[in-house]
Every structure is written in structure tokens, then in C-alpha cells.
Design a protein around this nucleic acid. Sequence first.
DNA 1: TGATTAATTCCAATGGTAATAATAACCCGT
DNA 2: ACGGGTTATTATTACCATTGGAATTAATCA
Lengths: 399, 399
Amino acid sequence: MTARSAADIRRGNLFEVLRRVSVGGPLSRQDIVTASSLSMATVASIVSELIQLGLLTESETVRRATGRPLTRLTVNPAFGLFIGVDVAETYIHASLFDSAFDARAEEHMAVVDPVGDPAGVVQQIGELVRRLSDRANGDQVRGVGICVPGLVDDADGVSVFAPNWAWRQVPVRRMLAEQFSHPVHLDNPLRALVVSELWREPGLGGKNLAVVNLGTGVGAGLAFGGDLYRGTSNSAGEWGHTTVVLDGWACRCGSSGCIEAYVGAPGLLRHLQEADPGHRALRLGQTEAITELARSFSAGDPAAVAAVQAGGRYLGAGLGSLVNVVNPDAVVLVGWVSDLLGDALLAAARHDAESHALVRPLAAVDFSVRSGVGNPVARGAATFALEAALTHDHTEGTR
Amino acid sequence: MTARSAADIRRGNLFEVLRRVSVGGPLSRQDIVTASSLSMATVASIVSELIQLGLLTESETVRRATGRPLTRLTVNPAFGLFIGVDVAETYIHASLFDSAFDARAEEHMAVVDPVGDPAGVVQQIGELVRRLSDRANGDQVRGVGICVPGLVDDADGVSVFAPNWAWRQVPVRRMLAEQFSHPVHLDNPLRALVVSELWREPGLGGKNLAVVNLGTGVGAGLAFGGDLYRGTSNSAGEWGHTTVVLDGWACRCGSSGCIEAYVGAPGLLRHLQEADPGHRALRLGQTEAITELARSFSAGDPAAVAAVQAGGRYLGAGLGSLVNVVNPDAVVLVGWVSDLLGDALLAAARHDAESHALVRPLAAVDFSVRSGVGNPVARGAATFALEAALTHDHTEGTR
DNA sequence: TGATTAATTCCAATGGTAATAATAACCCGT
DNA sequence: ACGGGTTATTATTACCATTGGAATTAATCA
């Protein structure tokens, strides 16, 4: 019942076609038909609309030994630019993409106020967006996507609740309107990770997916049938607070025994401390400590190996449980801790994941670590902005 | 992307209308429009098709003070009968429903062969179906739905894998064809529980739902957006094997620390044994033991109260985790253990569920115990049969 | 006749199927 | 060597079923 009307289906199919071309390079209409489950008629109609909107262009015509020549389609990077902003607890990262989703520029900033006063943070967001806009070389910025932790309400443009800073009902969009005039889409990082992955791997269309984020906190974003799943209160996927040890380590959520307490960055460092209380990584700040942990692990440092093994056990049990409930096609690990330690953690987790998961769900799932995409939250945020802009143009066009 | 074509939407809307009328008693087309999110045109078109198929009848015309009189619609119970069969580890339960889903008759049988030889079990199923058919009073039986634990493949009519009996690729439909000639739909009990609940509470259309089954084993069935979610390998919802204590009690799945090990019937009895090794319930068979546990609990027996409290803690942690990941509108407890102890267990679980779940998902969810529906698996199985018959008639009709 | 509510009909948009058009290499006969 | 027919492949068009919304018709009473 996700799609309730013909218009919903149209919208989904439109994005499907765009994703295919965006990732798969130049494609003919025929290529899209074979790759997707759409009919030729539908593809032709959607392509003609996307060309009319200026998002696709016919790039080349190819003659084969026989038959009518095919015309290949490309995303037109000049359609416009999109900015994605990842507002995290300690930093704000912003990326500028063209419509073909090539990153044009990036900006990074530490959050100056540790308490996260809304006015100050919004000021910083505005600064980053302005800097990137200045680097647009005259191309039009058509939208800005912003991801803030916690619960957000895009319709109202409000951050309803951000746990780390105790934000309540912060009207982000209204406040940003004084900083710049681009349309703003507000969302949550876990959702952004999912759309980032869905646009990156168009083969995931129609599939069930869990994107697991490993960072200071841990969580998962879910997609069912190729569609982002938000849950009833837009907060689905809080897998990091699955109880893995009843009455176990305290978690910053206030409960105890959560996966996050054992696998989040502080949890990994606690494992390290238990293995070697005097380990040099423990004297560093969190980011540097995890970097050092990764370096020590690679060097074969026994305490680092023990810490990763310990963390991996809990991660494995948690992944097994997730796979049992969700029964996905793919589980993808992302996040800054995953960038540094993902392969090691997944290797350490695999045995427990496989022993805790049931045979059938386990056989269906593919675990992997996603790396080298820059900041996937910023990318997903920009994708939201593109989707919003396109929905707008699309519905305007048919009026 | 659940619905990819107009036909899928039509099918979903058709069931939506039928569910509304089936549960909500006589309804006018207007009533259906206001209750559902369908347009008047769609409702009118679907109603006329359902009348043509013989499933709905215009039952009465009502004049109000002003305006055109309305005509109320009722499900025509004479459309046909459906049989649902719940094949469990120790018993087989079969129910006969008319198309308005009033139960006409029930049959129950213990599984004679503890090893569950396929031929013998199928023979028993056939016997029950024949007995119910004999009680149809000449009305046509239009379909039989059968639920077998484990993984089933309805398209081929095969039980791919049943854990308790070590069934492998048992061609149930083909074997049953020698017993009776009604169309057979094969499915899994957890899925049946979901459709049973969705048809019972039409307000759940479009909602996210988890149906938690408490029995010898425990598990959950999921629905997203009002649609049954099967997962990638038709095995989603194996929440009973979520790890709640790393390296905890052994579970019959081969792993350890699963919720099922602590909350399934054997787990509850183990809690009882830890509280009072000589408790009289422990000398009984499982079903009688749980019945006795429930009776002792009601009588205030300290050991029974302690056992329920202990089990409830694990159930609560598990429910909290489920709510965090799935973020559903409703969690409904069903199953034979739930029938006996559901209210007590839920009360004992509530505190832990609320402390382990995050604020937002917790605020969105409504926990409840469903009782008094007879055997909901059999009901769901019959619902599958109705859906199958209707899909068949519907597509035939438009040819 | 007007008001009011219920149900039907019409319309534009959409997707899928199937028929049709477009296009160019190849083949064959002259 | 050249021209027309053949064939293979790609893209477009026509047609039907569907939905939601708007306009219309239906049925009743004041």
C-alpha cells in the first residue's frame, strides 16, 4: 500500500529511471527496460518527461550490426546543483553536488558550541551553505538537504527533538531562511544513509535493505521493497538500542545493555580499556582514539585485537538479530567508525552473526562494508533535495 | 513500491473495501469513503464488482431527514465457505468459516506421530478437512488455507523446511490433492497471524504492525503500510531469536540467549523451576504446566509470580528492541501462552519495555493482548484462501 | 422549487500490452 | 555496383483498465 495512486507509482518510476541513468552511465531506453522491471512504454514516457525537465539529455547514437540505432541517455549535470549538509554532534559537513551526483566541493567545520545552541549551529550551517554557493560558478543551486540527528518534521521544517543537544521544536527552516533562499529539506541521518545507498546501487530497487551506521552512536536505516521505511513516528531503525545484554553496560540513552553501549566508539574504547587500561589510544580524543585503535589493530597489537574481537561479538549478535527480524537482502556498514574499522569489525562479528541468525535469513543476506563515498549522509541529504526539487517540477509540469 | 501497477492497487483497494464491510457491519458506500482513504468513484466501482462477484449484497435502504437515501452493504455469507488449518507441533486445528468470517465449525486433533511423518500428518489434515466439508450443509467450500511452521512456498505448494519435524521439500499440495479437491493455499503461521489481525481491525490498513506470537516458540509477524511483510526469503519476523543475553540460555535453534529461550513455554517453566524446583506444575506436560502456572499466578503463588516476573523482564527487553527497530503503531500479543498468561506477562514486561524503548517509538506504539478470536492462525489461513479465491475470480472476471 | 445527501459519470493522468513506426546493415539478383 | 527486399533492433503510438477529482444525476423531504 506504499503507492496508493497512479501518481505515486509515476513518481517512484521516475526516480527509478533517473537512478539507473545516474549510476549506470549512458544507457539507452532499452537498457533501462532490461535493468528495471518497467515496460518500454513507461520508460519512453518517463524519459521524455525527464528530457523535457532538462535532467536527461540524449548523448550519443550508436549503430550496431543490425537494427535501429540506439540513443544513449545521460544525466545533464547542468540541470542544477544540490547541497547536502550532515550536522553531527561534533562537526558539520557540507557537500556540493551537480545533478549527476559528482561532488563538486566540500566544506567541513567543527561545531564550536558543545551544547549546540540552535542559533549558533544554524549560523554555522548557513555559513557552509554560503561558502559552497560561492563555489557554484554561476550554476544554479536548486536545493539544500540538511540532516539533523533525532526526530525531524520536514513538512514544517522543524527539528522536533535532537537528543545530543536537547533541541526541542527548533524551526530550522525558518531560521535558515534568513541565511539563504534555497529550498530546504530537513531529514534524519539514518534516512539519508538509506537513500544514499539506494541511489548508489540501483540494483537495490525492490530489495530489502538495512544500512548500519557505526559512529559515536549506532543505528540502522531500513528500506523495504526499495522504499525508505520511516516507521510510524519517523524513527524506525533504532537498532543501536536493541538489548543485547539484559542489565548490561549503561547506554547514554538511559537504558542498559544496548548494542550501542558495546559497539559505539565509546564502547569500543571501553573494550580496549578492559584489555589494556594503559593503552596509548585511551589518552586521545575519541576520533583520534578510534584512529589509533585501527592503526594498532592493523599492527597486530594484542589489546587492539582483543577490543575489536570483543566489540565484534556484540556487533555480530546484533546483526544476527537484525537479520532475523528484517530478513533483508543486504546489510551495509557505513559511518566513520566503519570507515576506520569496518572490515575488522565485520570479520570479528561474522561468526556470531552467523551463529545467532537463522539459516534462511542468513542465506538470503549479504553483509558488506561501504567505503569511499565521501560523506554518505551529506550525499543522502542532497539526494533528498533533488527528490524534493524534482517532485515539485514534476507536479508543476503536469498542472 | 509494494504496488507497482494499477492492478496491484486495485487488488489492495478491493480487499480494503471488503475488510471494512466484513468487520464494520452494514456500511453505505459513503461510510466506506470516510473510513478509508479511497474516493467515492473508486468505492463505487469496487462495490459494483464485489456485488457482481456475489460477495456483497445491498442489504437495506435508509431514509434520513433529508437527502438521498443510502443503501447499506453486507457481506453475503452464502458466497462460499473457507477452511483454515493450523498445523502446529503437537496439534492440528481446523476451522470452517463462511465468507462473512463467522466460524461455522471447528475440529481439533493431536498429532499422532511425534516425529511428524509427512504422509501421516497430511493424512490427518485431509481427515479434518473432510470432516468440516461434511458439515458445510451443501454450501460450497471455495478454498482451504493451511499453515505449516517453517518456510513454505505457496506457488509450488511445498513445505520447503519445517524445523520441528525436519520436513524437507514436502509437496503438501500435491499430496492433499489425493484427499480432497478444494484449492489449497499454503503459508506460515506468523504470516497468518498478521492477516488475521489486519482483517479483524480494518483500521490497521496503512499502519505498521507487529503481531507477537507466544507459544512453545515465539516469533512475530510484521505488516508495513497495512501490507504483510514477508522479507527477502519469506522468513521475516523471527524476533524470537533476537539475542537478549549474549551467551545466555541455550535455545532450541542451536544458538543461545534468544528471547525464545526465556519467554517460550519451556523458558517460562525454567524460570518457575529456578523459583521453586518442586513446583507441582513442573510435573505436568507442557500445555498443562503453563495452564497450572497461570492458575498459580492468579492465586498469588509466589513462585509463579516470580516466574512470570522473570519471563516478563526478557519479554519486555525484547518488545522494547522490536519497537525501536520497527517503530510500529501497534504490537499485539497472541498465541496459546498469551491466551493463558498474556495479560500477566505484558504487565510484567511493560516496565522493561518502556525503559528499553526510546521515547519516540514508545510514544507511537500501543501494546495489547488479543484474545477471544478462537484460533487466529486458522482464521488467517482461511483468509489467505479467501484472498486467493477472490484474486482468481477477480482476474478471471476482467478477462 | 430548493436543499441536502448519495451515487454515478466524465475527465485527465498513468501503466501495461500489443501493434506500429523508424532505421540501418545485410542479402540477393541483376 | 546498385537497388529493393529482409531482418533485427529500438522507439512510439493506440488502446484498455485503473484512480481521484469535478461535475452531474438521483432521490428524498421541507
